[in-house]
Amino acid sequence: MTKSTHTSQETERQAPRLRISNLHVSFANRAHRWLQRNASRIHAVHGVDLSLQPGACLGLVGESGCGKSTLARAIMGLVPLDRGTVALDGSDVQCTNSRSSRQRIQMIFQHAHASMNPRMTVESIVTDPLRFDDRCRKSERTQRVAGALQLAGFDEQLRGRYPHELSGGQLQRVAIARALVLEPDVVICDEPVSALDVSAQAEILAQLKDIQQTRSLTMIFITHDLDIAAAICDRLAVMYLGRIVESGPTAEILRHPKHPYTHYLSTARNLERTGGLAQLEGEPPSPTAPPAGCAFHPRCPIRTDQCIAQTPSLASTGQPSSQHQVACHHSDRIVELQKITTTD
């Protein structure tokens, strides 16, 4: 415990490795009807601010469709930004659009199988990024690939196989090796274990945690599972419909969730006891027609008129650990919610 506060104080003084400010991403949504075309825009990411110290691991938690994958792709430069900046060590990645600065952020995709060319062997999949690394000489490639595969815990014997000949866990290790072979500073993991069996999940998570700590990688870990986030991340950011609704240290959020949505996320983890707990009603709203005010209000049991009228902004909770921020008008009334769920 004392160790963790020590490191957080230490990292506070450092400049952030990755800083994302006021990021907006939207897509054109063309609904084709017979002989007419309705164009509207889906606001997938709505003003996200994040800042990661070197060696930090941030968990981005939310339901599917909340915009967390889009945020990852936006940071990677795979989708165009509407507004906002992604700064790596203080310099904007978009302005210095050189290959080498882009290569300092790498990504592990959700579906390892789809993220690999089915016609390439493991070895050529992992070698491929090195073709675009100006610092890596041709003679070093084999060595770098072997190093990356070893770091990811991949069996050397299987390097000549094709993706479809590997199991899900092995495939994810190849994906990790490919992301690490360029020796990036920041790695974005987009649901790296959600497609795996529970037993493979545990192995991959342990491996990722190990790599993150030994290499002091800065990591953004995207998941919909609070348990997985808790296993690996030291900070969490909870996303709902394109906005971050709560962020702070993992333990703090797990113990004292301040946002009703986070509260329901953490109660839903306990599957054996769901019968006794009040459940979150309704479905996540569609990003094409987001609700006015607080996006969570249609499902929120403690909503008031203020929630419908006014969008809450992310603010400090006033707790001694000031890093805990929440975007809710009634974060002080969260205790009521806990009473509802326990007595029901």
Partner: peptide
């Protein structure tokens, strides 16, 4: 496809 995105992300 994802593998094209992956290639773009490492600078291909």
């Amino acid at each position: 496809l994802d593998f094209v995105d992956a290639a773009r992300s490492y600078g291909a």
